[in-house]
C-alpha cells in the first residue's frame, strides 16, 4: 500500500491536521475573533479601516425583497462577483465577466439568465453556502482584472495567492490556478494547480495538481516553472498586516493581483488548509516552530517581512 511511516512525515516537518488544530489554531486563534474572518463583509469593512486593499464593494443584498428588482442595481455593472458573506471553501461564488443581451456570461463562458442570478441570491440569503446553514447576506463587488503575469496561467477564474501568516510573519506561500477540472475554483482538492512560491523572492518552486507534481498547466500548457510574482514584497506586506487587523495568530490570507490596483485581499481564513505544504514540497512545522521561538516579535509589518524573506528562502528552513 502507498502509506508512509509517520516518523518520516515528522522528520520532513509535515504539519498534520490534528497538530494544526491543537497547537496552532487552538492556541493562537481566539474564538472571539473568528467572526471577523468568517464574515467577508466584516473582513472587508475592517480591511478598509486598516488600509488593507480589497476589491471595491458595490452593494450588499440583505433581504429577500431586494432580489425582486436586482436587475436595476446590476444594470450599470459590466463584470461583478456575487459572494456569500459567510461562505466557506469558495462555495457560492458567482463571477460574471460580461453580458450578451439579456444574458450574463459566467467566467466559465456559460450564459445565465437574471432568473438564475435571482435563485443564486435566494439560496445565498437562505444560507445554503454558509457554515451550518445560517442565514446570510450576499455581497456584490467589482471584478478583479488579473495581472498580465498570469495570462495563460489560469483557466477561468482568478489566480490567487495563499500566504500563511503566523504571528504576523509570512511563513509559506503558494499560487493557486483554477483549471478546467476544478471548475474555475481555486481549491486544490477540487483540482486546482498549486504552485509553491519562494518567500524570499516570489519565484515559483514547484507545481502540483491532485498532489502530483506537474510542469505545465493542464489546460493552457503554459510552463509553470518560471512563474515569478511581481511586486512580491508588497504582497507579503499586505499579508503581514492582516495579523494586526484580525488579531489571529495563524491565518491564511488569499490575495489577488489586480492589473490596475495591485495586490488586493480577497479573504482571510482562520483554518487554512495543509496542501500548501504539498505545493511547496516542504513541511510547515520547522518554520512555525522557528517563529514560535522568537522571544521579541517585530512590531512592524516591514520588519517581519524582512525577517521572513531573509529566513525562509528555498535553501533555508
Amino acid at each position: 500500500m502507498n502509506w508512509v511511516s509517520p516518523f518520516r512525515l515528522a522528520k520532513a516537518g509535515i504539519l498534520g491536521m490534528n497538530c494544526r488544530n491543537v497547537d496552532f489554531i487552538g492556541r493562537y486563534n481566539l474564538r472571539r475573533f473568528y467572526p471577523l474572518v468568517d464574515d467577508k463583509l466584516k473582513t472587508k469593512l475592517l480591511a478598509e479601516e486598516y488600509g488593507v486593499a480589497t476589491p471595491t464593494l458595490r452593494f450588499v443584498v440583505k433581504t429577500q425583497h431586494e432580489i425582486g428588482h436586482i436587475e436595476d442595481r446590476l444594470m450599470d455593472l459590466n463584470g461583478f462577483a456575487i459572494k456569500p458573506s459567510r461562505g466557506s471553501g469558495g462555495k457560492g461564488i458567482l463571477v460574471i465577466i460580461g453580458r450578451k443581451g439579456n444574458q450574463f456570461i459566467k467566467s466559465s463562458g456559460t450564459e445565465v439568465s437574471i432568473e438564475d442570478i435571482r435563485r443564486h441570491l435566494t439560496n445565498t440569503l437562505a444560507g445554503l453556502y454558509s457554515l451550518r446553514g445560517a442565514p446570510d447576506v450576499a455581497i456584490i463587488e467589482d471584478l478583479i482584472e488579473f495581472d498580465d503575469t498570469f495570462k495563460g496561467y489560469s483557466h477561468e477564474g482568478v489566480p490567487d495567492i495563499r500566504i500563511i501568516v503566523f504571528r504576523g510573519y509570512p511563513v509559506m506561500a503558494m499560487l493557486r490556478l483554477a483549471t478546467h477540472a476544478s471548475d474555475g475554483k481555486a481549491n486544490l482538492h477540487q483540482g486546482a494547480v498549486g504552485v509553491g512560491l519562494d518567500i524570499a523572492t516570489g519565484q515559483g518552486l514547484k507545481a502540483v495538481q491532485f498532489s502530483n507534481p506537474i510542469t505545465l498547466h493542464p489546460d493552457t500548457k503554459m510552463p509553470l516553472g518560471d512563474l515569478k510574482i511581481p511586486d512580491w514584497k508588497n504582497m507579503l506586506l499586505l499579508a503581514s498586516r492582516c495579523y494586526e487587523m484580525s488579531n489571529l495568530g495563524y491565518i491564511g490570507t488569499d490575495i489577488v493581483l489586480d492589473k490596475s490596483r495591485g495586490a488586493q485581499l480577497l479573504e482571510l481564513n482562520a483554518r487554512p488548509g495543509l496542501s500548501i505544504q504539498v505545493a511547496n514540497g516542504k513541511g510547515l512545522l520547522p518554520r512555525l516552530r522557528h517563529i514560535e521561538k522568537i522571544r521579541k516579535p517585530h512590531r512592524l509589518a516591514d520588519d517581519r517581512v524582512e525577517y521572513a524573506m531573509a529566513t525562509f528562502h528555498s535553501q533555508g528552513i
Binding site: 508512509v4 511511516s5 509535515i14 498534520g16 490534528n18 502540483v208 498532489s211 502530483n212 507534481p213
Partner: peptide, 22 residues
C-alpha cells in the same frame, strides 16, 4: 484523543507524494 496532535492515518497517504519525491 482530543489532545492527539500526531498524524491521521489518512495523512500518511495524503503526504506520501512529498516524501517519495524527496
Amino acid at each position: 484523543m482530543g489532545q492527539y496532535t500526531g498524524y491521521k492515518l489518512s495523512e500518511l497517504r495524503r503526504f506520501r507524494a512529498m516524501i517519495e519525491e524527496d
